[in-house]
Simulated assay, not measured.
Amino acid sequence: MPQMSPLSWILLFIYFIILLMLFCIYNYFIIFYKNPSSSKKKFSKISLNWKW
């Protein structure tokens, strides 16, 4: 039935959007972020005075 084809496309679109969102959320939470306090220690050792 051709009348049902648009509904099918909409469901496929929703399905792939949900998959994309789940994939992005999964990738966001799998990355291990470093503690910001450890990065501040690196910058405190570096001299920010220009030599020229």
Rank of each mutant, 00 (worst) to 15 (best):
F13N: 05
F32R: 10
I46E: 00
W52R: 04
S8D: 12
L19T: 10
S47G: 01
P36C: 01
L12M: 11
P6E: 00
I18K: 12
M4C: 13
S38N: 08
S39F: 09
S39V: 13
N35L: 05
N49K: 13
L20F: 13
Y26P: 00
S39R: 12
I46K: 04
I14A: 05
I25V: 10
S38H: 05
K45S: 06
I46H: 02
I18S: 10
L20K: 01
S39K: 07
Q3N: 08
M21T: 11
I30L: 12
C24K: 14
Y28Q: 06
I14Y: 04
S39L: 13
L20W: 04
K41A: 15
L20S: 09
Q3G: 06
L11A: 14
C24F: 14
F13M: 02
I25Q: 05
I25T: 15
F29E: 01
M21L: 11
S8M: 15
Y26V: 06
Q3W: 05
Y28R: 12
I18T: 15
F29V: 03
N27R: 07
S37G: 09
F16W: 10
I14V: 13
I14C: 14
I30D: 05
W52V: 08
K42C: 03
I25H: 04
M1L: 11
N27V: 02
L22A: 12
Q3S: 08
S5H: 14
K40P: 00
M4Y: 13
K40F: 07
L48D: 08
K45W: 06
L22F: 11
W52Q: 08
Q3E: 15
F43M: 14
F29C: 01
S44R: 06
Y26A: 05
K40A: 13
K41W: 07
Q3P: 00
L19H: 07
L22P: 00
W9Q: 12
S37L: 11
S38V: 13
I10K: 06
S39C: 13
L7C: 07
L12V: 06
I25A: 04
N35E: 09
I17K: 10
I31V: 14
K45L: 07
S47F: 01
I17F: 13
M4V: 10
L7E: 14
L20E: 01
S5E: 08
I10N: 11
M21D: 02
I31K: 14
N27I: 05
S44Y: 02
F29Q: 04
N35H: 09
W52N: 04
K45D: 15
